[in-house]
Design a protein around this nucleic acid. Structure first.
Lengths: 262, 262
DNA sequence: CGCGGTGTTGAGACCTGTCAAGACGTGTGG
DNA sequence: CCACACGTCTTGACAGGTCTCAACACCGCG
């Protein structure tokens, strides 16, 4: 998958042409607006956060645990994850990020992370200086609350993953994850009908679900056998969303996608 | 454990005498100060958040999932937990709260919770109106960031629990939890040497650790057999903290207890 | 004195992990 | 253009951690 090729020029971080920067932050605004009203002045200020974007290659570690942070990473396109490395080489992924997400907005207040941020696939990101976030949130207390809200939704996602890890079997856990990912991608317009690009390897899925890659493979087969999903050529199709939700005991309210303006 | 007795007068929520309210919020300030500098004016404003406290009894559900929220719960003394109820009656606890914690500060921006807040033991709480939090954070943007930070630490705790649930066996998971609880209690002055009150039942522990009560019992015995802890009469003593940390692969940096003033 | 909540113990079942081997596809280098 | 290497996916046999079910002990409280 071109790991070496990308790694080799990864440090150059070729910038994306600034033309269309306004377009590039659309998914982010779209998601914010799913949850609150963003005024015109606020929108303008948010768009001004991003001055340039970068390409990053699959498997790159963007941020390392403990590193002092000066900016946060906004995902424009691709897949990022928060990963905790453990003694013994095991790695656990605590959240997947889809376009429009800040992968480490919590870094704005924490100043260092308790996990790595890694690219699971070739991606496009934007760096947002904390300095600029500070100005923005000082100027617009409402935006501060919207972003605070946003990190609180991340925590809600963590909670649901923990419930899955603690109380659901492999089949149910995976069903729950696919439901979540589908909805989150749908909000930012990254689905086509019931399908979406899903370049996540079984190994990476295992890191999310607290399973081994072998068992992920078997569980995927079970989901296919039950005709709940299709997954081929890195594209996932949900065949029976209602059944999948039932299998994962999925209730989307923890994603807080219903608009609740202040 | 007086469940019925307390339930019966639980609704009356006998208020604690307002004398000593300043004392009562000390643990909270102590914890904030472990992480950032709180000025005198800020301290005064924080103390003014709380106007009265309430007693709540073990097993009471203080907040239900989905309920519209007007205030947040500050734990003064006792034990609260965030609990997710699942179909089939199982309940998973996603975080334990010690005195000085807000159990649902995230409710300030989320406006409803994706979980319940329950009392695991007889406790004393203070209700902080969101209205007052709004005024406070508008007036002191720095305090807004301190509280934002605080909810981000909750998320970091969620992540570590998820790693435990996903990748550690029962023994290691429990060791990790005890290390965390010990440090968090220590910060707010609720430890005596290497011991602390720990009125959590094995059933409740099981809900935290994604285990059954039976297996919690066996795992506790294993920890005692290795002379890592003692636990009797609802009091836990850590006999070998270094060994316990090693067993749980515990690294306290995710608690962000090192002071990092802005 | 009896009861409910809690803690303890044993035996067997089951889900998931471990280890090992091979298939498949794609990019690389000769 | 082919051979090869590598990452990924797949399959099988077996081991082991944790669950389930069941019974019993303990204890504070009504």
């Amino acid at each position: 998958m071109g790991k070496v090729r990308f790694e080799s020029d990864g440090n150059r971080n070729a910038t994306v042409s600034p033309r269309g920067l306004n377009l590039v932050i659309d998914a982010h605004l779209r998601r914010l607006r799913k949850r609150d009203v963003i005024g015109a002045a606020e929108e303008q200020a948010i768009r001004a956060l991003v001055s340039q974007t970068q390409r990053v290659s699959a498997h790159r570690t963007l941020i390392r645990e403990g590193e002092k942070l000066e900016h946060s990473v906004l995902l424009i396109d691709g897949w990022l994850a928060r990963a905790v490395d453990m003694a013994g080489g095991a790695r656990h992924i605590t959240e997947l990020h889809v376009p429009g997400d800040f992968a480490d907005l919590h870094g704005f207040t924490l100043k260092r992370l308790d996990h790595d941020v890694v690219a699971l696939a070739d991606s496009i990101i934007a760096l947002v200086p904390h300095e600029r976030l500070k100005e923005l949130t000082d100027r617009f207390p409402h935006i501060a609350r919207v972003y605070w809200f946003s990190t609180n939704v991340d925590a809600a996602i963590h909670r649901q993953w923990a419930v899955s890890l603690g109380r659901r079997n492999a089949f149910s856990r995976m069903a729950h994850l696919f439901c979540e990912i589908f909805l989150r991608l749908d909000v930012v317009g990254k689905t086509t009908g019931a399908s979406f690009d899903f370049p996540i390897t079984q190994e990476q899925l295992a890191s999310c679900l607290g399973l081994t890659a072998v068992h992920v493979n078997r569980t995927l087969q079970a989901l296919r056998r039950e005709a709940l999903i299709e997954l081929e050529n890195r594209r996932l199709t949900i065949l029976q969303f209602d059944e999948l939700k039932r299998a994962g005991e999925f209730d989307p309210s923890y994603l807080y996608l219903d608009r609740q303006p202040e």
